[in-house]
Write a protein that binds this DNA or RNA. Structure first.
Length: 637
RNA sequence: GCCAGCGUAGCUCAGCUGGUAGAGCUACUGAUUUGUAAUCAGUGGGUCGGGGGUUCGAGUCCCUCCGCUGGCUCCA
């Protein structure tokens, strides 16, 4: 007789032997049919597992967040089983769950997406058959014997401890797996194979290349469909596509990974930076600028030559080797060293919109998101140790302020001392506590990533969330205990002695190019008025009204509005359509009525049209919307 | 860098198993003078990513280089 406690506190008695499924059925058959797995005393396991002693139980059903992970793991097995039928020669390696699905790495003949249909068809058959997944504990010897002809599995088993090895069998397919799994394949009602790629065994380029097939799975077709719709929405917003359509930027074979910004793109860029400068000036920053090319000796001193050499472009000038800067900090160190500093001068907040070049591997380049030349909205803050908390808090507040202007939410992560690091315990403690207490003072929840800090100091990473729920790491605040040492920075303290200042590097947009790309996707090209390259398009209704349109444009220009006249001899409908497709926030139509009454007909991107709008009312509303950098279009309100 | 797929007009794309390039939009010209998402007609526009090869003949096949896209240990 054993006693099982349920989440609501009730306790039931069961005769031995009893497994999780039987306990679930004691609630109801219908409930049991929806159970995916169970949690026994906090450990997730299979429903088929026998319960041998008193325990607390919680059933995991499709609606629990962890259930989908179990489902996807089982889906990976399902795919492997299907593939073992179609490609009997395939050797299986690992098949884990990843962020939005799962994958399985297999040593097999190359497959392409065209092969997915037949694999999926086979998977569907197996789902229909509702094949149970059965767990079995095996000894290491048994396991090795079973996988005698499977080199990858044998290798994995060799790394495992005897007594902890389990197999899962579903029909004719058995896989080494820790589990847990769903009771039978019938749960996998909605799945899709997504893509195929190459991956090395254990990620090692020296080892054999495997076929990796990615898939995803959900408990319902509806959820799968919602996920696929999200992907479609993301594809529609793809900044490379929108950037081409709106004539914002381009890439050319002559400079791979280095973006060209067009006139429209530069309007956005300049508006973005004007805003950035305004906020930084207000927050007490000064702006500096350091050269693109600096002598090798400097990079040796900073440690980049030793640690970052393979990402740096170098150039020989007058027989002296130099490097194009991949980071702005060494230049910033030189500026600090120009003068003697008193503790009274600190903190010094020196910003720099620095253009950096990094030689990224050709295969990782991706639109504006991963480039070889980009601008960082960098700043180095030099301070005394007791200023850490306040300065970090200041950066966090600036971050919050600036991101909210774009309607971007964010969360914070603190990374602490890694195994390999420089500096003393005391320094790390002081630095990490400084960051943590700033985070506490700021008041938002944050996640701690133990050991994820840089070797030269702890850091805070800021992850933003865009309009369709995707997250991106943009901002970062890194405390640096290395460079002040290497460059022997100092300030004179109250005691009239030299002291080492504390320095942080911080960025808010991060890479401006990347942030630009994120904004394109976040807004889906429909920029708020203050960022829109063209704010107003003027459509004269016929050719005779073009001179009148020019007068109106002059009024707009005088007020600082970016406008242009579409004077093509095309139909109004066509010009409206063009303006809408170009995502121009305001369309002003001018006809005889407007000319007679000195009014405007104004159409916004949502298709609403207001007639008889006063010119001054319109201009004032637009200008105040821009000055306030509003996210919403309220010009017609 | 490695693997897979891709590269045809400014843009989006068609071009079957090799037979000397095509559509829509854009642009330009003319007609129309338009009241809120595509007026009509005409014209222009391509070394089919570069180079090499096979062939009587290559956008199509092969080799090579370049570029783009997606991946490249969130460890059974």
């Amino acid at each position: 007789m054993i006693y099982i406690t349920f989440p609501d506190g009730t306790v039931k008695e069961f005769e031995q032997p009893v497994d999780g499924m039987a306990v679930a059925k004691s609630i109801s058959e219908g409930f049991a049919a929806n159970c995916v797995a169970m949690e026994i005393d906090g450990n997730t396991m299979d429903l088929s597992l026998p319960l041998k002693k008193d325990a607390t139980i919680r059933f995991i059903t499709a609606s629990d967040p962890e259930a989908v992970t179990i489902l996807r793991h089982s889906a990976a097995h399902l795919m492997a089983q299907a593939i073992s039928h179609i490609y009997p020669k395939a050797h299986f390696t690992i098949g884990p769950v990843v962020e939005n699905g799962f994958y399985y790495d297999m040593d097999m003949e190359p497959v392409s997406e065209e092969d997915f249909a037949k694999i999926e068809a086979e998977m569907k058959k197996l789902v229909k058959a509702k094949i149970p997944l059965q767990r079995k504990e095996v000894s290491k010897d048994e396991a090795l014997k079973f996988y005698a002809n499977e080199p990858y599995k044998s290798e994995m088993i060799s790394d495992l401890e005897d007594g902890t090895i389990t197999f899962y069998t579903q029909g004719d397919f058995t896989d080494l797996c820790r589990g847990p799994h769903i009771p039978h394949t019938g749960f996998i009602k909605a799945f899709k194979l997504m893509k195929v790629s190459g991956a090395y065994w254990r990620g090692d380029p020296e080892k054999p290349q495997l076929q990796r097939i990615y898939g995803t799975a959900f408990f319902s077709k509806k959820e799968l469909k919602a996920y696929l719709t999200l992907l479609e929405e993301a594809a529609k917003r793809d900044h490379r596509k929108v950037g081409t359509a709106l004539d914002l930027f381009s890439f050319h074979d002559d400079a791979p990974g280095m973006p060209f910004f067009h006139a429209n793109g530069m309007e956005i860029w300049n508006s973005l930076l004007a805003y950035w400068r305004e906020e930084h000036r207000r927050a007490g920053y000064v702006e500096t600028k350091t050269p693109l090319i600096l002598n090798r000796v400097l990079w040796e001193k900073s440690g980049h030559w030793e640690n970052y050499r393979e990402n740096m472009y170098t150039v020989v000038i007058d027989e002296t080797e130099s490097a194009i800067k991949p980071m702005n900090c060494p230049g910033g160190m030189l500026l600090y060293r120009m003068k003697r500093h008193s503790y009274k001068d600190l903190p010094i907040r020196a910003a720099e919109i620095g253009l950096v070049h990094r030689h990224e591997l050709s295969g990782v380049l991706s639109g504006l998101f991963r480039v070889r030349a980009f601008h960082q909205d960098d700043a180095h803050i030099f301070m005394t140790p007791d200023m850490i908390e306040e300065e970090i808090l200041g950066v966090l507040k600036l971050v919050a302020r600036m991101y909210s202007t774009f309607g971007l939410g964010f969360h914070l992560e603190l990374s602490t001392r890694p195994e390999k690091s420089i500096g003393s315990d005391l320094q790390w403690e002081q630095a990490t506590n400084g960051l943590a207490s700033a985070l506490d003072a700021y008041g938002a929840d944050y996640q701690v990533n133990k050991g994820d800090g840089a070797f030269y100091g702890p850091k805070i990473d800021i992850h933003i969330k865009d309009a369709i729920g995707r997250t991106w790491q943009c901002g970062t605040i890194q405390l640096d205990m290395s460079l002040p040492e290497r460059f022997d920075l100092s300030y004179i303290g109250e005691d009239n002695e030299k002291h080492r200042p504390v320095m942080i590097h911080r960025v808010i947009f991060g890479s401006i190019e990347r942030f630009f790309g994120i904004l394109v996707e976040h807004f889906a090209g429909k920029f708020p008025l203050w960022l829109a390259p063209v704010q107003v398009v003027i459509l004269p209704i016929n050719d005779h009204l073009v001179p009148f349109a020019a007068e109106v444009k002059d009024l707009f220009s005088a007020a600082g509005l970016r406008s242009f006249i579409d004077d093509r001899t095309e139909s109004l409908n066509k010009k409206v359509r063009g303006a809408q497709l170009n995502k121009i926030p305001l369309i002003v139509t001018l006809g005889e009525k407007e000319k007679a009454n000195n009014t405007l007909a104004v159409r916004t991107l949502d298709g609403k049209v207001s007639y008889g709008v006063g010119r001054d009312d319109f201009i004032n509303a637009a200008v105040s919307n821009i000055l306030a950098r509003k996210l919403e279009m309220d010009v017609l309100a």
